[in-house]
Simulated scan of single mutants.
Amino acid sequence: MERDLKAATGKREARKQDRRLAIMAIARRMFLENGYAATSMSAIAAELGGSKATLWNYFPSKEELFDAVLDDATAAYRQQLTDLLRPTPDLGATVLAFTRSFIAKITSRDAVQLHRLVAAEAARSPEVGLIFSRVPQRTRQLLAEFFAAAMAAGQLRQADPADAANVVTYLCMVLQQRVLWGGAAPTAAEIEAGAATATEVFLRAYAPERSHSA
């Protein structure tokens, strides 16, 4: 009896999760195609084939749904960073691996499309910009924790880890700006060169301070 109850509960949870993913898939497509302001919860519910009340049971507001869509879109990348940003004796190799992956991520078609959507919508829907700002904040938090450990180990000079995270991410945005303004997507060679430059500049700026003998 208990086993049957657990099995039934598990099936219900699986159905709820499937429904939630279906909602986010529809919402993501509609946000990208129509924009945030022009996408309504009613339209999402209609395409889903359920009532608006059912949709609200999963997401009480459009803002929460948009936040969930962004979180889901970046979850795999955050896990990749969590696996990558671990204490290591070869700090340079890890920073290079990060800059390479980050440049590839922010210049990808999906990321550029989403960035343009937010830029177009933020003026009339300020909540869009506020929600979107949480995405880079999550990445920078992971970086800041990694840099704090590197500073404690003497691999980087003592500084504000959050500032260090901001610096390295800004250094990676050169190619992104080109793509956002309609330029060609970077080649693998351009990503590698951009990553190498960003890494070198960052490591020089945050190199451990040498002790001076008296």
Score class of each variant (00 low, 15 high):
residue 85 L to A: 02
residue 124 R to H: 15
residue 93 A to H: 07
residue 106 I to E: 02
residue 113 Q to M: 12
residue 125 S to F: 14
residue 124 R to K: 15
residue 111 A to F: 07
residue 1 M to V: 05
residue 173 M to Y: 02
residue 97 A to Q: 09
residue 132 F to C: 06
residue 13 E to R: 12
residue 187 T to R: 07
residue 138 R to Y: 07
residue 207 A to C: 05
residue 22 A to S: 13
residue 36 Y to S: 01
residue 103 I to L: 08
residue 171 L to H: 04
residue 156 L to W: 01
residue 160 D to A: 03
residue 141 Q to S: 13
residue 197 T to K: 13
residue 88 T to L: 02
residue 168 V to S: 02
residue 15 R to D: 11
residue 100 R to F: 14
residue 62 K to C: 06
residue 179 V to W: 04
residue 92 G to M: 08
residue 165 A to S: 05
residue 113 Q to W: 00
residue 80 Q to E: 14
residue 171 L to D: 01
residue 94 T to C: 14
residue 123 A to D: 14
residue 211 S to G: 10
residue 37 A to M: 10
residue 195 A to M: 08
residue 34 N to W: 04
residue 186 P to H: 00
residue 201 V to S: 00
residue 57 N to Y: 09
residue 206 Y to L: 11
residue 66 F to G: 01
residue 43 A to N: 11
residue 142 L to K: 01
residue 125 S to G: 03
residue 35 G to W: 03
residue 146 F to K: 01
residue 93 A to W: 06
residue 61 S to G: 02
residue 181 W to I: 11
residue 104 A to M: 03
residue 132 F to G: 01
residue 138 R to S: 12
residue 93 A to F: 09
residue 56 W to D: 02
residue 50 G to L: 14
residue 91 L to G: 06
residue 139 T to I: 15
residue 92 G to D: 07
residue 104 A to D: 11
residue 38 A to S: 12
residue 158 Q to G: 04
residue 27 A to C: 09
residue 125 S to E: 15
residue 46 A to L: 14
residue 91 L to I: 00
residue 113 Q to G: 05
